[in-house]
Structure formats: structure tokens, C-alpha cells
Design a binder for these strands. Sequence first.
DNA 1: AATTAATCGAGACGGTACGTCGGGTCTTATG
DNA 2: CATAAGACCCGACGTACCGTCTCGATTAATT
Lengths: 205, 205, 205, 205
Amino acid sequence: MSTPQGEIRRGRGRPRTPGAEKRIIDAALEEYGEHGWSGFTMDGVARRAGVGKSTVYLRWQDKDSLLTDAVSSHSGDIGGVDTGSLRGDLHDLAVNLFSHYRDPAGWAALRVLVDAAGAPHQLGRFVETVADVQVRFIDQIAARAIERGEVPADLPAREIGQCVYGSVTMQTLGVRLEGREFDDAEIEERATVLVDVVLPQALRP
Amino acid sequence: MSTPQGEIRRGRGRPRTPGAEKRIIDAALEEYGEHGWSGFTMDGVARRAGVGKSTVYLRWQDKDSLLTDAVSSHSGDIGGVDTGSLRGDLHDLAVNLFSHYRDPAGWAALRVLVDAAGAPHQLGRFVETVADVQVRFIDQIAARAIERGEVPADLPAREIGQCVYGSVTMQTLGVRLEGREFDDAEIEERATVLVDVVLPQALRP
Amino acid sequence: MSTPQGEIRRGRGRPRTPGAEKRIIDAALEEYGEHGWSGFTMDGVARRAGVGKSTVYLRWQDKDSLLTDAVSSHSGDIGGVDTGSLRGDLHDLAVNLFSHYRDPAGWAALRVLVDAAGAPHQLGRFVETVADVQVRFIDQIAARAIERGEVPADLPAREIGQCVYGSVTMQTLGVRLEGREFDDAEIEERATVLVDVVLPQALRP
Amino acid sequence: MSTPQGEIRRGRGRPRTPGAEKRIIDAALEEYGEHGWSGFTMDGVARRAGVGKSTVYLRWQDKDSLLTDAVSSHSGDIGGVDTGSLRGDLHDLAVNLFSHYRDPAGWAALRVLVDAAGAPHQLGRFVETVADVQVRFIDQIAARAIERGEVPADLPAREIGQCVYGSVTMQTLGVRLEGREFDDAEIEERATVLVDVVLPQALRP
DNA sequence: AATTAATCGAGACGGTACGTCGGGTCTTATG
DNA sequence: CATAAGACCCGACGTACCGTCTCGATTAATT
């Protein structure tokens, strides 16, 4: 988070209202979800959260920071999978990603990400989150597979991860442009097909 | 383009200045490239292009349309590849995509795309352009490969295309977040690795 | 006025809406009259005038300037008196001043004046207007009286003027603090008494 | 003062810091003197006085009250004159007023007064102070003069007082708008001339 | 050549949101 | 209790842009 509250707040003065942070973030995500980027206004967020604008600006320096933070605070446990097989892990990873993008905050995250990459100024923890998905999660999955002897040690894990993450993203982009969303069955099916494409030769059906 | 100049301009009154269209689009891309979305202003574009705002609004109905148009006007011949082998075609497709993203307009296109998907309201021809890249190009490539007998007819072409397009996008996202760009050698290498991952079993090295 | 439109507006771009200036000034005076200084807001003025805030700020650099200008634009013909006698002229001057202060704009003018004197930064034409009232009008009145042979040439005209202006101001201040206003009869009576006090010895009853 | 501390403070809890009242008032006058009305902020006063805002608001209900109070606490003994002659008394009264206005607090008082008259809401003791200057002091001076037999009993004392108070105010206004101040010699001279104008016929030189 | 009509650069227009600031209130921990 | 600190809600500030509009000045094609 860009909210620089690492330091311990010593108790002089009125403490910051505990719930406010969360209420603002929730409001931000709702506003963004309803109105998109245009129509995502700080006044609107403050009003919806039931706080004053100064309370928002006390915590985030500007609109971008707020959205970035809001979005990265919802990047859940996408990579928290462990099915016992590489195929299963990749499948679940893909499903988790598809589901992640169905959450407005999840999709918003992509937008923020593209923004951040377009004008590299403030990154912070958010980029790490992304790196996690792109790199660490897949590394863990691959490590387990190698340990199990499923695949050779020179498995191009990261490249596979990029394909999974990228393909899910592109498919979601496509379906959203059609004005639709994937239902659970579709996700299941597409995840399966995707895994078949990227899975190492030896493990394909 | 969304510029609604399909109708024939019957020549009464002053004709539109020929160069203006292009100068505005170039200015738009430069402004976007320098300042990002925030900081991309119509006044700025008009000033940089040396035209009045009315000249801009005479051709594009709003800011979104201009950027969308500017961006899609630079979507070059990504899929115009024909090397004689599926491997070669996929490799060149990946290389073209990597290069496309190095062009500010190419990167901007992704941004616009994500925006459009986030708030599905006005899409128009732009979405088609994207669909083209995702679908038509890969379909052509696959059709040729099947014709040549390289691969069976049930090749999951679109899924492979999604992987290629997606992986390139994610890798570019990653490298941009690091503040870097890929050089030609890197692109070559990454394209090769990527093709190895998504290429059907039978054609792998 | 602090509106720096002395230069001739050459016809490039859309000309400023002719009526706007006046509508804004009127709105300003009404807002000030209704709500006082606090509660006199630029948003309120713009809304009441039916213009955008930018239209206001295009003409006046800030709130103070607007009020100053609004107020000085209503400093009417206080000194435009010529009754044929010094006594009559002074009497009418006093009556005009009393009446001037009954106009909200007239009273506001005093407020602005005191402010300006408290923090001497931007004065401009407004101060001149005031100086006019204090000095030029009384000088004219005195000059005519001397010409007519009513009074000697060494008449302390300015000092008399200060007494008239000051006394009317203080009396108005007093009556306003009581929450009242002078009616016409009271004004008449007080003007008469005042003139008796300041009129040169020879001309007193 | 509007500080509602007529009640006896029963000694429960921490007693109010003794010096605070004065420090705040001084800070208020300094802030007002330096920045004028705009730029006179409660935060600024509290900071300068080295107290918390609550300490200020515990004593004064709002900004107006504080300034009003600060200002009226410095309204010294303007009318405390007794020279033995009407001419001398009026002269000293004028000199005292001129001097009063050289004190920032003295001038600020006028601003507060005009404010109060513009929006008659809270008056309190401050108006009385003004009434004193305008009425009581001049009444006393006149009473003594009548007692001494200097002037007839129907002397228009209040009108004379208004002229003195008003003229001094207007002259000060004028000189302040020039960005100057009167020095002692100037005050002396102007007081003398002023008295000559308003003094009853029989007592003029 | 005169007329007509669309486009041009410029810039003012009514709005809306920005990020800041101040007013007056409230809530802590410390006297 | 009062205090110093400082967060709170509110709303105005002055700025920047949006997309529209209105100018006078071009610039052809049509009379």
C-alpha cells in the first residue's frame, strides 16, 4: 500500500478512525465498478464511504493512489493451489484467475496495472503482487512438480505461467468486450483446454 | 476509424485540410506517450497539432474516440506473416507483437482496450480490429498449417493464439513495470521459447 | 474596475458575452446582501448569475476583486449636487451619502474599503473612486461657493468634507448596529443638523 | 468579553492555564495585523499562541467572537480627557482617536464594527464600547463645558462627536489607503484643524 | 467576379472534478 | 477536568479540462 503507515502511531491527537480505510476502499471499488474510470470521482467515493474528502486525502495523495491501493488490496490468493499434480495446479491457477477477473476489483487491477506500466512512476507493493502471480506462484507450482518427479528440472515454468496468465487475461478481455462474463462451466472448460496447450508434452492426454 | 466520413464529400465550402487528420493523430499519440492518460488533454492535442479544438471535434466526437482511433490506426500488419511453417509463423507473430508493444501507439492500444472492456459502452470498429488480431490471424496461420499437413485439423488454434498474444502482453507488462524495454535479441529469444511452449507436441524440438 | 479590459478586444476567438459582466456583478451584490461576507461564495454568485465559474474567474482574479468591483460599480452620483448655495450642496451631499449607505452595495463598499485599508495590496480604481467622493466632490462644491462669493477662498473645504462623510458613516454604523435603518425624514433631519455643525460660522442660522 | 466565565470555576479537574487567554488574544491581533481578515485563521492563531484549537474554542465560540473580543480588549481610554476647556477636550479626543487607529488592534476594531453592522447577529459588549466613544465620552465632555459656562446647554454635542469620530476615521482610511501612517506632528495639526471646523461659533479663533 | 458554404484558429461558454484549505467538532493521551 | 495534538465532516477555494459555441478569416465550388 502506498499509505505510509508503517511507523507506529503514537497516541497524540485523535487516532485515525479505524474503519475508514476499509470503507473508503470498498466505496472506491464500487464506484469504479459502477461507473468505470470516468465517473470514478473522489467526491463520489467520499460521499459513498460517508467520510469527508480530507479524510480520503489524508490517507492517499491522489486519485491514482487510491485506486491502485484499492485494487491491490483485493488481489486474493490466486496462487494458493496445491492439488498434488502439475496439471491440477495449473488448472486451478487458471480457474482462480478467471474468477479473479469476474470481481470488478480484479478487472480494475488490470487497468491499473496497464496504467502503471504506461507511465512508470509509483509502483510499490502493487507491482510485487503482480510479480507474485506471474513468477512466484508458478515457481512454487513447478518446484513441487519437479520434486514429485513429474517433470524434468528444466521445465520452462515461467513461460508456462505467462501463457496461463496471459491467455486468461486475453480471453476475459474478449468476453468482456462482448459484454458477457464467463460462467463457472465455461471457466472450467477453458481452463482445461488451456492447460492442455501449455502442459509439457509428456503430461498431455 | 470512427470518423464518419464514409459519405462522399460534395465539394461545396472549404474542404477539410488534408494533413490535419494525421497531425492530430500524431499529436494525440505523442501527448499520450508523454503524459499518459491523465495529462492527455484535448487542448493539449490541439495545441501540439497546431489546430483549433473545433477542428478536432469536427472529426472525432470525443476524447475516447480520438485516442481509440489514433491507437487503432497504428495497428500494423501484426499477422501478416507467412514463413512456410507453423513454427515460423507463430514465431514471427510473437516477434511482431513484441515489436508492436514497443511502439507507444501499440502499447496505448492495449490500454484503450482494457478501458473499453472495463466500461463496455462505445467500442465500434476498434474491438473488431482486436478480434482480428486475436482470431483471424491465428486462423489463417492454422489453416495454412493444416493445408500443408503439418498438423491435424483439430488443432486448438485459437487457444494457441490466445497464449501467444497473452504471453507477449504479460511479458511486455512485466518489463515495462521494470522501466525497461526488450531489445531485438531478447524478443527473438523470448519468441522462440514461447513457441516451444505452445507448439503442438509433434512439432516440438 | 480591476477587470483589465482597457485594451481593445480584437476579434480573435469568441467574444465575451456582453451581458455576463453585469449579471455577475448583480448576482454578487445580491448574494452579499443576503448572506453577508461569510456565505458570499463564488459558486453561489456563478449559480445565481447563471454562468460557469470559469466565466467569473476569467474576469476577476479572485473573490475580493469581484466584490470590490461590484461594489465600486454602484458608487453612483453621490456628489452630483448643485443647489446654488453651499448649505444646500452640503445638505444634499449628506442626504446622498445616507441614501447610498441604505443600498446594500453602498454599505458593502465601506466594508471593502476598510478591508483594503487593513491589508493594502490591491486597490486600483476603487481607491480612486473613494478619493473622488472624499475630495473631488467637496472641492467642486467649495469652488462654486467661493466663486459665488459665499465664503472666503481659504475655506477648509476638505476638512468639512471629511466631517460630512465621516459623520454620515458613523451615524449609519450606529443605526445599523441597532438593527434599524434611517427613513427619509430622519435622513433629512440629520443632514440638516450636520450641516449646521460644519458650516462656516458666517453661514450658520 | 463574550467569554462566558461569569460563573465561579469550582476547582474540579485541571484549572485553565492562566496566561492562555492573553496569549491567544495577542496572537489573534498579530495574525490579523499581518495577514488581514483573509489569512486570519484559527489554526494560525492557535499555532502562534502555542495552544491547541480546543483551548481556543473552549473560550470563544467562533472566529468572529475571538476577533471581536481581541479587538475590544484593546479599546483604551480614548475618552479619558479633561483639559479644562471644550477646545482642549475635543482636541485630545481627536488625538487619542488618531493614535488608537495607529494600533493594529484599533484599526481592526473598525473592521469588526463594520462587519457587525453589515450582518447584525452578535453584538455584545463590543457595540457598547463603540457607543461609549460616540456618545458617552462626548456627553461627558459637553456636560463639563456647559457646567463651566463655556457653551449653551443646547450644544449639539452628539453631532459634534460624530463629526470628530467620523472625520478621524475617514482621514485614517485615506492615509492607510496611501500605505502611510500619520506621525505625531501630523496628528497634532489635523486635530487642531478638525476642532476648528466643529467647534461652536463662539469658541472659534 | 460575386456568391455561397464549409472549415479553419482562437478562445469564451456552462459544467464538473480536482486537490487544498479552513471552520468548527470530536477523540485521544497527557497533565 | 483542561490541555495539545490532530483527525473528523463539510464546503468553498481557484484551476484545469470537457465538449459546445461563436467569432472573423480562409478557401473552394458554384453562380
